[in-house]
């Protein structure tokens, strides 16, 4: 498994001098990846609620209906279980569907199809069937949308063998993860954090392997392991810590299943301290999984107990001050790091 440091990616002009990184947004990078997939493979189609006429509930697919037509950019009724299941069937039948579920909260209506069909068919059929399906959905809080629109349930999905789960946190990953996801013979769930859509960055257009974590900032005193919407928070914390003389390494998991243990363990071997930052709830969380693996495999590397910074264990409330108190903040990460290095 690979780890790459792209904190300092430079303009990466290829031999012909034609391709270089483009400055764009996370949303546009996702759209560009969809456009490329639709253009390059006849078998690919996009379906979901309001992906066409409305332009996508987060405007990711805006314009694609006009470009590719209603056969390939398909608006569905409000029937999550039916259209996710239909995506599974279409994948079995040789298509390469990309199913969009508006948010992870609504994916629960399709959980049966995702778990009992998509995740099991390959193994249960003794390897006869494969489900090359990509399911994209939005996750995360921060916009005062209250308890039925704000949760981070990707950790639940990462619990399920048979699924691959990825969470692009950067513009480059937003651009580069779809093609490998489509090429994968297994069902891939791609989580887009609502708070990242407007973020800007550079995308070089290259594919991003689905199973490698990335070191986003090198450091020596502590490893902050995070993913998705918590990457900016973790990087901001690292910046603040640097000012007070603590060098934090920030590892972006990128893939939540499988987990790139090697990158995490190598980082902890360098820093001897671990802080996991996860927007999900703490109990039974992805953060728990990371901490447990480090405890199992790198116990003697650790100079301090691992720390976890997670959301408060409450349904996310509407009021701004309560929502803020619920979510992991830069201050919380900084405090956790101070406890481990203190």
């Amino acid at each position: 498994m690979s780890a790459d440091v792209d904190a300092d990616v430079d303009a990466d002009v290829d031999a012909t001098g034609t391709i270089g990184p483009v400055r764009t947004t996370y949303r546009e990078a996702l759209r560009e990846a969809l456009r490329e997939a639709l253009r390059e493979d006849e078998r690919v189609f996009l379906m979901g609620e309001d992906v066409g006429r409305y332009g996508g509930c987060f405007a990711v697919s805006l314009g694609l209906l006009e470009e590719f037509g209603p056969e390939r950019v398909r608006d569905t009724p409000l029937s999550e279980s039916a259209f996710v299941g239909a995506g599974i069937g279409a994948a079995l039948g040789g298509r390469r569907p990309i199913v969009e579920i508006m948010t992870v909260n609504f994916s629960l209506l399709a959980l049966d199809q995702i778990l009992n069909n998509a995740a099991t068919l390959s193994h249960m059929s003794g390897g006869q069937l494969a489900v090359p399906l990509v399911i994209r959905m939005t996750t995360g809080a921060g916009r005062q949308l209250a308890a039925q629109h704000s949760h981070s349930l990707e950790g639940w999905y990462a619990h399920i063998p048979g699924l691959r789960v990825v969470a692009p946190a950067t513009v480059s990953d937003a651009r580069g993860m779809l093609a490998p996801a489509l090429a994968s013979p297994d069902p891939v769930l791609l989580f887009e954090h609502a708070g990242l859509y407007a973020s800007e960055g550079e995308a070089d257009g290259g594919p991003v392997a689905l199973d490698g974590a990335a070191v986003r900032r090198a450091g020596t005193d502590v490893s902050i392991v995070t993913y998705g919407g918590m990457l900016p928070t973790s990087l901001a914390a690292a910046e603040r810590l640097a000012a007070e003389g603590t060098s934090a390494e920030v590892v972006d998991l990128r893939s939540l299943r499988p987990l790139d243990e090697d990158t995490v363990l190598a980082s902890v071997a360098r820093t001897h301290r671990l802080v996991v930052v996860d927007e999900g709830w703490r109990s039974g969380s992805l953060a728990a999984e990371v901490a447990a693996r480090v405890a199992e495999q790198a116990f003697y590397d650790l100079d301090a107990p691992p720390e976890r910074v997670c959301s408060a264990e409450v349904p996310v409330p509407y009021a701004a001050h309560l929502e803020r108190a619920t979510l992991p903040a830069v201050d919380d990460v900084v405090a956790a790091v101070r406890r481990t290095v203190g």
């Binding site: 209250a146 308890a147 629109h149 509407y318 009021a319 309560l322």
Partner: peptide
């Protein structure tokens, strides 16, 4: 709803 629900709840 004590401010926890907002418009939708």
């Amino acid at each position: 709803s004590r401010g926890r629900g907002g418009s939708m709840h």
